[in-house]
Structure formats: structure tokens, C-alpha cells
Design a protein around this nucleic acid. Structure first.
Lengths: 108, 108
DNA sequence: ACACTATTTGGCAAACTAGCCAAGTAAAAT
DNA sequence: ATTTTACTTGGCTAGTTTGCCAAATAGTGT
């Protein structure tokens, strides 16, 4: 694999990495509905605010979400709504897996 | 976050995790073109065959690819081609990031 | 200027991931 | 039956990620 391909794939992999955590997926799903401040997201996730803040900075670093400070709060919103289209396919993958496991079990 | 949501998100995150590595993305791209045996993929990636085999088992475990043994070789193929649709959006995300950095640089 | 609130950052331990090598398995060829 | 080839698995080390706590920063209100 040449270094140009390597670089291209690493950049792409980083976007997937940003989405590869349950709390970060919850954040994306929630921001798809409406913008939210860190305290609201922290409440939903139920982790330390510093932990949530770090998750947010991973998503922001990947260019998936955006922030805006208003007064004391920082509001985050979904910057690339196209990521929501991922979820259909991910659902399909999981559904297929479940079906296959079910069939395996039913072979007596 | 209740435990049902937690479970749903963890399952979904695992699909993204499987895609979150440059070699695994190369594998997916290549299998989108045609099925390949482990030795061909190993050649392309340029890592130890045992490493490639482990990457393949991550993708297989996530339900994204499928294998079939024929003689001495094991052939892998893309099982869920819908993941290819991810790439358009990932490209869009990266392009947007690059544009923004470019604009930042050009502010004098 | 001081206290208060919302958020980010640094530091650290625990858990996880990646890659190599060596050893194991399974089908094919001799 | 033994050897060879293609692949997988186990074991180990190095590097990365996660999450908590404590400390720092930045606005707001008094």
C-alpha cells in the first residue's frame, strides 16, 4: 500500500473512529434532533462532564459536529447530517446478524 | 441512559469500530470490486498474514464480510455492500474539513 | 474585585487494540 | 504417511482509548 493511499485511508478511518463509541453515537442522534449544551448531553449520558466534553471534542475534531459558546454554555450541533444515513445501513447489518444467529439456533 | 439504549448503541458502535482502521477500509474497498483470498489481501496491505487474518475476523465478526474456504484458500467477499454508501459522506466530511482549514490559513 | 457556574484540560490508572512471531489446523500434493 | 501451502490462533509488547478526579479557564452576577 503506497503512502498516499495509506494517508487517505487513515483520514477516513478517523471519521469512523469518532463514531465508534456508544456515547458519541447518542450525542450524534440527539444533536440530529436539536442543538444541546454540554450539561444537557452530560445528563443524558450519565457520565462525568469532563468525559462528555472529551467525547464532544473527538466528534468536533472529526468535523462531524460544531460548537458555539453562548453566555456560560457551549451549544453543540450536528454539522454533517449526512452521517445519519449511516444508521440505516448499520441497522441492516445488525438485523442480518441477528437473523443468521437465530437460524443457527434453530438448526435443532 | 437506560440499559436497552446502551445495548443498542454499543452494538451499533461495534460496526463503526470494525471500519475504524485503514487496513480494514482497504479490505472493504477491495472486496467491493471482487472477492479475494487472504494471500491477495495480505499482499496489498503489506503486513503479516496473521495481522490481516485478524483484521478479516473483525470485519467478519461485525457481519460486514463473509468467508468461504475453497481448497487451501479462504475467499472473502463483501456481505453488506450498503457500507459503501458511507464513503460518500465520509468524503464530504473530509472535504469540508480541508476547505475550512484552507480558509483559516487564508485569513492573512 | 469576588464568588459562582459551565466547560475544558492535564494527569493518571485500567482496559482495549494492533502487530509481530511462533505454534496449531486443515486441505492438497507427493 | 509425510510434506507443503494457506490460513488461524495464542501470546506477548507497545501504543491508544476511556473515564474519573482535580485544576484551570471563561463568562455572569453581585
Amino acid at each position: 500500500m503506497d503512502s498516499k493511499t495509506q494517508a487517505r485511508l487513515t483520514t477516513r478511518a478517523n471519521v469512523f473512529k469518532a463514531l465508534a463509541h456508544p456515547s458519541r453515537l447518542l450525542i450524534v442522534e440527539e444533536l440530529a434532533r436539536k442543538e444541546r449544551c454540554v450539561c444537557e448531553l452530560t445528563e443524558m449520558i450519565g457520565a462525568d462532564m469532563s468525559t462528555v466534553s472529551k467525547h464532544l471534542s473527538v466528534l468536533k475534531g472529526a468535523g462531524i459536529i460544531q460548537d458555539e459558546k453562548r453566555g456560560l454554555q457551549v451549544y453543540y450541533r450536528l454539522k454533517m447530517p449526512c452521517v445519519l444515513r449511516f444508521f440505516d445501513c448499520v441497522g441492516e447489518v445488525i438485523e442480518t446478524n441477528v437473523k443468521e444467529q437465530w437460524e443457527l439456533v434453530n438448526l435443532r
